[in-house]
Write a protein that binds this DNA or RNA. Structure first.
Lengths: 178, 178
DNA sequence: GCCTAATATCTTATGTACTAAGATAATTAG
DNA sequence: CTAATTATCTTAGTACATAAGATATTAGGC
């Protein structure tokens, strides 16, 4: 557990502060992303798919559904919009003609990239104030953090398997009327 | 993952790696939040408002609209849903009866809190592997990061004032009529 | 006090993006 | 060749958002 260098209390407070700071900056990051999507005139999901396309390159519609957690029907809509706006192209796989590969139209996508310039500059400025060793620590933190959140996402499913009398009250009736 | 500590190139690569790691973990964090909202049976906006209520305490409907960026009409819907599900209560301000304060029903809201336990445990575990000094560095980083993103969000508005021939293609058709 | 303007929330009409279920089309297995 | 499987698209219905305006309350000028 803790490398308890000074008092336990202050360390606890430190962690609390850290949690809040992380939450704040993360929330602001989400806002930035939404602002970019807005300016580009596409939805959040559309933007998320563009992100995935950049990271993974040419992917199938099914893969997008898998990663985003959206239904294949929703992905059809996403790709329709992105294709119509000129950001991506549909390309049938010639060896398996059921599959549809989605690929980015780089020249057009670069227009979106412009909106990320302020963010990239801010991050660069921020990071340049750290030593290599400090950056390594941050990298380790980010990687461990990712693993931690993944782990927590898995553990979250276990929470649903808790005493049923509690669970019942948490559930929302999926059928609603207006 | 070899680290070349000396050359500028490796520092550049380090930053690139850091950017990607941050992006991944942040995206995963968003996913976690969505999963929690899903399990609690409320929408993302509903959850965001619950968050704000926890941070700011008893706030008016108008304040929620202001912070979330949603219209007041949308907030009416959010509060309707949350109230119906028992998470919040509407309370008219007696000194200005136009205003409606929204306050959390703590006993009910605690049920949502349960879903955050896995995340909190993961973070606690993660942070306990760092020294106090390291945590201070991380805190500084998170705070500076927040400021950086805020700054970038401001700068983003300036990007819209770029050559109009580019902007036109980016704009969303506001094709609503009434 | 009364009329007008301003403020805070809610209502209505409408549009977008989602899901669920199933249709369509291509591939694989028996 | 037929049946099962896989990948995407289509259709019908729902949720949640906006825009504009309705409603209710408060505040200001006379």
């Amino acid at each position: 557990m803790g490398a308890d260098l000074s008092s336990t209390t202050s360390r606890q407070a430190l962690m609390q502060e850290l949690e809040e700071a992380m939450r704040r900056s993360s929330a602001q990051g989400v806002m930035y992303g939404q602002a970019v999507a807005n300016m580009a005139g596409i939805s959040n999901s559309d933007m998320e798919c563009m992100d995935i396309l950049h990271l993974e390159g040419r992917v199938t519609a099914g893969r997008l559904a898998e990663v985003t957690g959206l239904t294949t029907g929703a992905i059809t809509g996403v790709v329709d919009r992105l294709e119509k706006a000129g950001y991506v192209r549909r390309e049938r796989d010639e060896s398996d003609r059921r599959k549809v590969f989605i690929s980015v139209v780089e020249e057009k996508a670069a227009e979106i990239g412009k909106f990320y310039v302020p963010m990239q500059e801010a991050m660069l400025k921020l990071w340049s104030s750290y030593t290599d060793d400090e950056l390594h620590l941050l990298l380790r933190f980010a990687n461990d953090g990712y693993k931690g959140v993944l782990e927590a996402t898995g553990a979250l499913k276990a929470v649903i398997d808790m005493p049923p009398e509690q669970r019942a009250s948490l559930r929302m009736p999926p059928k609603t009327r207006r």
